[in-house]
Design a protein around this nucleic acid. Structure first.
Lengths: 245, 245
DNA sequence: ACCTGAACACCGTTCAAGT
DNA sequence: ACCTGAACACCGTTCAAGT
């Protein structure tokens, strides 16, 4: 067996067994989806993906293209998993359902939220979501303000998922430094604003993962509600409904 | 001169001139700040930073530590450049000023916004900003809701800067695909929601950088206003002011 | 058409040693 | 104390060749 100085051996044995069928674009995305679930979209390498498929990295390029092409396909699959609410719901309920149901799907595949907000329009399933959402807003009377409102509502929620994904990537040591930095000012008379945060942080468990998850759930729901309130405000002030210019 | 198989030559010559003073933590952050301005916080490498200082990579580790430590110091410098509004302003004006003035600073140093929303509490200058902001909200009557409102307002604006940074990283080719994907549905009767976006996109110049910047400015201002509206809504409904639990 | 095997030009970090 | 020079264990992508 030859030495492999710059690539991991695909599957550990020298050559792909002859009885195995050729890899396919669908199979590549299946494997990338599994890696995204365990590692996150930005954490797996093309070499890991190739190893999972038991081929050399070059084979993946032959079927789909570079890392970005694979990641785009993964994002399309994941966004397609988000079920779109019924078009008969009122706009506020429609978006509330979409954003609350979208979070667990996106969080399961860390890094997809970032890609969604970055290149949404070239993700086919995101275009479908956008079409439905804008229709709902148009029918609710948002007129020219519908596109800005759509982008604002989805950005608010999905960028928060992106931040949650980023923080999940933090090492335990970094998480402790974060909680500690806030708790340190709990009784600081010079920084009465931070003292309030410190008190809030220390009153709940900062080490219990379930307590932290509950805090994240609450702040996500708060974010969705405040953004819906913010957009609702333009309906009562139609002069400010669209973007200027 | 010996071969350097795994590191660039610092400064191109074999050895650092004896007359140069030793590098310092401050000098390292100065150089990293310049690289962040030209390349973005995530785009420069420790090797590039070392080359700019005309030392071998190991020397940087000796004075500050790893890449994360340098990036944290850069983020602290940049956030410290954001001037805090007068504490005498009303809460809405205070946040409007902070978020509108914070954007150009953060965009000048791409990637810092992401780090700010990810590890804010361990960035000293971000803690100062947080202390002031929460005081302003407390004095405006937000009570226990002040910390959630602070996080919501700063997240809304700074995560949008993060998305703008990400999109600035897109290659021209990817930017065209994005605009094209929306414009493609301009006259699509099957997708009336997307048609509205397509029309809006094609009515303005999609290639003129100034027109694109103006659209981004408008949407940022819209985002800030909607978030302020969303938070203002809790003042009139005090039962929903804080987070549940 | 599909894939191998190796290479190219990079990373971040750490080793042991030198002055 | 400060820094060199080299190494370790990785990256994404591309080359030329094999079946």
């Amino acid at each position: 067996m030859p030495a492999m100085p710059s690539s991991p051996a695909p599957g550990g044995r020298g050559r792909r067994p002859v009885d195995r069928p050729p890899i396919t674009p669908t199979g590549i995305v299946d494997a990338a989806l599994r890696l995204t679930e365990t590692e996150g979209l930005d954490a797996w390498s093309t070499r890991q993906l190739a190893a999972a498929l038991e081929v050399w990295p070059r084979a993946v390029y032959h079927h789909i293209g570079d890392r970005d092409a694979v990641a785009d396909a993964v994002a399309d699959r994941v966004v397609g998993m988000i079920s779109l609410p019924s078009q008969e719901l009122a706009w506020r309920e429609w978006f509330s359902a979409l954003l609350l149901e979208g979070r667990p799907v996106l969080r399961r595949y860390r890094g997809v939220a970032r890609r969604l907000v970055r290149i949404g329009p070239i993700i086919p399933s995101a275009l479908t979501m956008m079409d439905r959402g804008i229709l709902v807003l148009q029918e609710a009377g948002f007129a020219e303000g519908a596109t800005a409102a759509y982008r604002y509502l989805t950005n608010s929620a999905f960028t928060l998922v992106m931040v949650e994904d980023d923080r999940a990537e933090n090492l335990p040591e970094a998480r402790e430094r974060l909680a500690g930095a806030l708790a340190a000012h709990r009784d600081d008379p010079e920084r009465r604003g931070l003292a309030a945060v410190g008190a809030a942080v220390t009153s709940r468990g900062t080490d219990d993962p379930e307590a932290i998850a509950a805090l994240e759930d609450d702040f996500y729901a708060y974010t969705v509600e405040r953004s819906l309130d913010g957009v609702a405000a333009v309906l009562s002030r139609p002069d400010r409904g669209g973007l200027s210019g």
